[in-house]
């Protein structure tokens, strides 16, 4: 019973941050400064998710080495993405580079 309450509480805390802005503010105009800030937020969040995943994949220290497949795979994905604009192709090449360098490192 109390486990059910805990799960319910966690569900609510996970749901409210995603829902409340949509419910409360979507019918108002947004000030221009907020709009500018929000335009740069998605790339900033992506960067914040990606940098640690690539530079420190094991969660310990920064691994700025050629034996870090996450770094190799990430760098290849980024480089290909700057040239080609085809999402699936870019991703597939990056994942292939990741597994290849993993296999080479052993």
């Amino acid at each position: 019973m109390s486990m059910a309450l805990l799960i319910l509480g966690m569900g609510l805390c996970s749901f409210l941050p995603r829902y409340l802005p949509l419910a409360l503010f979507a019918d108002r105009e947004m000030p221009p400064l907020a709009e500018t800030l929000l335009r740069y937020t998605p790339p900033a969040v992506l960067a914040a998710l990606v940098f640690p995943a690539v530079l420190a994949p094991s969660g310990d220290g920064v691994e700025l080495t050629l034996t870090n497949p996450y770094l190799i795979g990430g760098a290849v994905t980024f480089a290909v993405g700057l040239v080609s604009k085809r999402f699936l192709l870019v991703t597939a090449v990056g994942i292939a580079a990741f597994y290849l360098s993993r296999w080479l490192v052993g």
Binding site: A47, P69, G73, G74, T77, F78, V90, T91, I95
Partner: peptide
């Protein structure tokens, strides 16, 4: 390394965008 595909997709979005 099963966590890498999502990272790769996020990086692809960053580079393309």
């Amino acid at each position: 390394g099963l966590d890498f595909p999502v990272t790769a997709m996020f990086i692809a979005m960053l580079a393309i965008g």
